[in-house]
Design a protein around this nucleic acid. Structure first.
Lengths: 214, 214
DNA sequence: ACTCGCATCCCCCATTTTCGGTATTGAGTG
DNA sequence: CACTCAATACCGAAAATGGGGGATGCGAGT
């Protein structure tokens, strides 16, 4: 298993390199203090996994991860950092990182994480995993999901509206007259405290009052 | 640490109970084959962590997790299952599960997972973790984020529209005439292949063509 | 028996939106 | 320089929407 290190701290970089090289079946094929010309560098060496620091001079680990996943999707990127704030984690995941470990990890943890990454796992410090779950949950279910007391009919009218239908089309869809649709719309407006269809649609989608495709 | 088991397979349930009881500092305070009246049950016993099977007769583990997190937010729920499909994982996370382990885990894994859960971690089989990351990524950045070649002006008009503004208000906001707004709207419609403001708003929000508040 | 919410439909009318044009200006490009 | 294109602006007609009213029937609950 060929590993490539990006880490600006010389001491840590050399320690990691040593750790990897003394571990059976692991080889450190390269180690760099920054991400300058990283695509060119990677083209020249064998690499299965990149051990990537986030905070580096020049190109950040996040940017580097995006570049790597863009050019070599098969390479796993394992983020290692002292930061564990939501924003860093979030960005790392979006950039395509395979895992996220803290520098406080033991050498054994590092090795296990690298092995996990290779075998299709996503190594994470348990506290990071919890953060990811929390982030995930928050993004999925908007906090205060007010109900606005919409009736079933009103919800279905609203749904049709988010699909871009006109009153006339909605009427056809729900087998009622356009006038009825208008009445429902009036009620929706007062309940949602809006006064245009666009605002209603925006509110409906953002507060997921209607089930969207995904 | 008090643990409560929900598992319909008698053999597995008793094995787990034994495993937990023989482990120092762990106690299995209860073990049930189903989730009937689980709130009443939990009120009577001490419980820090629930080890929850997903597939059970009657109330499913997912439903049970929701109920538990609703009534006793402090109790950690650790899902254990043979299924590792995206849908199960997704629902478990949404229900508020603290972790998700496979039944193929070793006894040592179980104990470690329980310990992790208690100390604020989110134990996950590495392959599950990878799935979570993948799910997360997919939900966050809609796959093909087409650009539609909207110009800056068009985007800002679209943004205003998602805020529920009328043409007149947008014109005032952007310091142009209503006629200009109309022209921009026409162009937006053709570029987005829509033919109503509601559809444009829906598309804009769902494909995050405009930056929404969150 | 009576009320109340919900769904349904109707009328009217002002305003807004949609869509078909046309046209000028300025910036950028080959 | 000619050309394209974004941005600006205008006209006008047809269609849709927003807001005001009122009316009916139905079922659930008091």
């Amino acid at each position: 298993m060929n590993i490539c290190i990006f880490e600006d701290n010389t001491h840590l970089r050399e320690s990691l390199q040593l750790l990897i090289d003394v571990t059976p079946s692991f080889t450190c094929t390269a180690a760099f203090p920054n991400c300058n010309n990283l695509i060119e560098k990677l083209e020249k060496i064998d690499c299965d996994i990149c051990l990537m620091d986030i905070e580096m001079p020049g190109i950040s680990g996040i940017e580097a991860t995006k570049l790597i996943k863009g050019h070599f999707p098969k390479i796993h990127v394992l983020i290692q950092t002292v930061f564990s704030d939501d924003d860093s984690i979030f960005k790392a995941i979006c950039a395509g990182a395979s895992g996220y470990i803290l520098k406080s990890s033991t050498p054994a943890d590092y090795i296990e994480a690298l092995r996990d990454a290779q075998t299709g796992g996503a190594p994470m410090t348990p506290s990071i995993a919890r953060r990811v779950l929390q982030l995930f949950k928050n993004r999925l279910e908007p906090p205060d999901h007010e109900d606005y007391n919409l009736t079933e009919k009103e919800k279905s009218v609203l749904l049709q509206l988010t699909l871009g239908k006109s009153y006339k089309m909605i009427a056809g869809e729900l087998l009622v007259s356009v006038e009825t649709v208008k009445t429902h719309m009036k009620n929706i407006y007062t309940k949602l405290h809006v006064n245009s269809s666009t605002e209603a649609v925006a509110k409906a989608i953002q507060e997921s009052l209607v089930r969207t495709s995904n």
